[in-house]
Design a binder for these strands. Structure first.
Length: 165
DNA sequence: GCCAACGTTGGC
DNA sequence: GCCAACGTTGGC
């Protein structure tokens, strides 16, 4: 097949705010990923995440942080409308309809992992111990994942690649 | 709850 | 343009 190679991402969410189960429960198992208010992550959402890309859904800021499920991007970057809504927690008066500052993508759940992959699980695996999410001080809520890391997650989880026919 | 690491803001 | 102060993130 020609065209661009699929890329992979890890996306963090606090499960008490929006969990993988929440995503699974949405119509079409799809939801927009709003509320990112960091320029580096914004640039990734706006420019880099493309439909068909793979997503590792990571639960952060919880008792046992872990990768809990697989998802995919189904719509690339478009303006985050919550920035325009004064009643939203994510309202940003600098952003306007004609000149949006913040962007989001749509994500669809593919499948949960049979067991969450904790940080200890990741650290133990030679292919995964270098993942960005393990690095101290890394606060990026959207970050790139290599194809090897994606495969490693599938391997220790014992699940087939959802993108393989 | 603690606190290190980081990004952003604003005075100068 | 520097940098201190501040707010937030997020593991532990």
């Amino acid at each position: 097949m020609t065209g661009e190679k699929r890329r992979y991402w890890l996306m963090k969410s606090e499960p008490n705010c929006f969990s993988f189960d929440d995503l699974k429960g949405r119509p079409e198992k799809t939801e927009h990923w709003d509320g990112v208010r960091n320029f580096q992550a914004r640039n990734l959402l706006r420019d880099e995440l493309k439909p068909g890309d793979g997503v590792l859904f990571y639960h952060s800021n919880t008792r046992e942080p872990a990768i809990v499920g697989l998802a995919k991007v189904v719509r690339g970057g478009y303006p985050d409308h919550t920035a325009l809504d004064p009643r939203s927690d994510h309202f940003d008066p600098r952003s306007t309809e004609g000149n949006p500052i913040w962007f989001m993508v749509d994500v669809q759940s593919l499948r949960p992992l049979p067991a969450p992959l904790t940080r200890d699980d990741l650290r133990r695996h030679p292919l995964l111990s270098g993942m960005g999410v393990l690095k101290k001080g890394n606060r990026l809520s959207v970050q790139p994942v290599s194809a090897q890391e994606w495969q490693g997650v599938l391997e220790i989880s014992g699940v087939p690649d959802p993108f393989e026919k």
